[in-house]
Design a protein around this nucleic acid. Structure first.
Lengths: 261, 261
DNA sequence: GGAAGGACTTCCACAGGGTGGAAGTGGTGG
DNA sequence: CCACCACTTCCACCCTGTGGAAGTCCTTCC
């Protein structure tokens, strides 16, 4: 018997989703037992349910018994607005930025208290970074995060700053007052900067994508080696790209939706 | 009462998945009624189930009542091997190809009777193409498709060629014997070519990614305007990229999996 | 070689979550 | 003002999922 006396007894669909939810960046492949333990479900239940998910294509199971996310689920997920419309529109502009910089180009959206990375371009010559498509990173220590936060409404920013701000390097901003000051400066300047706040040796510029019709709001950023001192020179291109993306998004919204997004 | 006397009574999880399956490239957003009709489920059932999916984040519902695929499902799907490992490894090489050509760079895998597009890079100057990340296109009319098909085992190729081959342009190969001949030529040549077989005005080169440890098998392709006649010149770079990707995939497989993929 | 342990699979009688027709609500357009 | 349509809520019946227990099949260790 599970000890979920407080949990209001998950439904079948809820259990199926719980199984999907057990996968994360550190655990993209799981064995049956791990799946059951992480989802806190009895083993036979997981066994039966997982088999059904596999038969539909929501999960895959390889010869060694490991489960991973299935191809068909991935395929369905490409239809999410964030992956479809936003990415599709942004990509050519991100390519342009990549060509001129050959550095990591990030596209992230605001979700909960995190910046969720929707697209990332990088080449062999780019600095290695911790981001990954589908990854969540904090907003106070990343370029795109600060750009998003600087645009968020005051109540949200206050809520964000009142939580403990995890430290990643000795340059990470962890004092609430300093974060608020930084965000004010970002808003006035019109773009966000970071300097070794997430990873030593890298710094970044980012701007918010000015689209009023589209949610969740996005931001575009570039991460470079900190030895490069010409971060500011990237701003005009970055801003032009963000504005062009925003314009296209608004057009696309008008096309498909009579109401708001 | 639904008329599914032949369908073996779908389970709850099956119904939830059926809802996700109602979305496709032509219908990325659906209203409740459409969802119910397309999934062939009673409206109250869909209503209840959809609400549960929304609360988890597998679906989203906007102010106008339209459902679409949810952010959390998209996030989970980024953990699929095809999106995670394959894409991540291939991307820098695809970037290199993009820089030298500024044309559409495609990465596709073999799934069922289709080429499933896993990644696509394109800029403003690239020819417009019908592909989309997550899209499925036939294997006999696309570069990546032919590259995959030329490597598939004989039984599969026979099964493929025995089905009717849909025609897209007057250049599409629709005769079975000719397709088999073409595939033989592709295998000998070591790369696939198409010439206005999917879309008038575009042609393409593609090569299979030579990885023995990794399934599903992938292919890398470039689509350019047909006025460009130097398609063959792209082959060395393309092949080098595919080989490098294959090598990295095999390393990655060794790292994480004692057995086979 | 054999015993112990662990991971996975199968079984089945019980029970509580899901079902879906029907009725209610709200908005729209004629 | 009414008719219509899309969505939402309700509830008593009953079928589907439940999960402990037992079975199978490796792997490891002595």
């Amino acid at each position: 018997m599970a000890v979920n006396s407080d949990v209001p007894r998950r439904s079948m669909a809820g259990r199926a989703l719980a199984l999907l939810g057990t996968f994360d960046g550190g655990h993209p492949r799981l064995k049956l037992t791990e799946l059951a333990r992480r989802a806190d479900l009895p083993l036979p239940t997981v066994h039966r349910l997982a088999a059904e998910l596999v038969s539909w294509g929501a999960l895959e199971r390889d010869a060694t018994g490991y489960y991973s996310i299935g191809l068909r689920l991935w395929e369905a997920a490409t239809l999410a607005p964030v992956a479809g419309r936003l990415r599709e529109i942004a990509l050519p502009f991100m390519q342009d930025l990549y060509e001129t910089t050959r550095e990591n180009i990030h596209l992230a959206v605001h979700d909960g208290f995190d910046a969720l990375y929707v697209e990332k371009l990088s080449g062999h010559r780019s600095v290695p970074v911790v981001s990954r498509i589908g990854a969540r990173l904090p907003m106070h220590s990343t370029g795109v995060g600060k750009a998003l936060l600087a645009r968020a409404d005051a109540a949200f920013v206050r809520a964000y700053a009142e939580r403990p701000l995890p430290r990643f390097t000795r340059y990470t901003i962890t004092e609430h007052a300093r974060l608020l000051r930084e965000l004010r400066a970002t808003a006035e300047r019109g773009y966000a900067l970071t300097n070794e706040e997430m990873t030593l040796g890298t710094c970044s510029v980012a701007v918010a994508i000015p689209s009023d019709g589209y949610t969740p709001a996005g931001a575009l950023g570039i991460v470079v080696r900190s030895v490069r001192t010409d971060l500011h020179r990237l701003v005009p291109d970055l801003r032009a790209a963000a504005e062009a993306i925003g314009r296209k998004l608004d057009e696309a919204v008008d096309d498909t939706q009579p109401g708001r997004a």
